[in-house]
Amino acid sequence: MKLKGWKDIPWGGLILEAGNAQKYETGGWRTFRPIWHEDKCKQCLFCWIYCPDGSVIVEDKKVKGFYYEHCKGCGICAQECPFEAITMEEESKFRKDQGGRP
């Protein structure tokens, strides 16, 4: 996202565009990554309810994975999952695999 100059932004840090947090990618904050294990998942949607950031992808009322652009790796989903269908793994592993990118 190209950063704007002081003449082109609302004053006082006000946000005038509802929902624009979606444009602000916070996945880079993550040190642990949630991994979804489809075989163990019972589709209870606890992870979707508990995620503070709306980072659980749900399609047709079914969990499909995570939005890694926004997931900060807090681990609440893994903690709340009753079926151990989500595990937290070190982000560095994946960064190496992906050429240093989250």
């Binding site: 002081w6 840090g13 946000i15």
Partner: peptide, 15 residues
């Protein structure tokens, strides 16, 4: 409108 969001090294200076 949102008042008071976090404003770090990317925009605080402009404000």
């Amino acid at each position: 409108v949102t008042y008071g969001p976090l404003d770090l090294f990317d925009y605080y200076f402009e404000h």
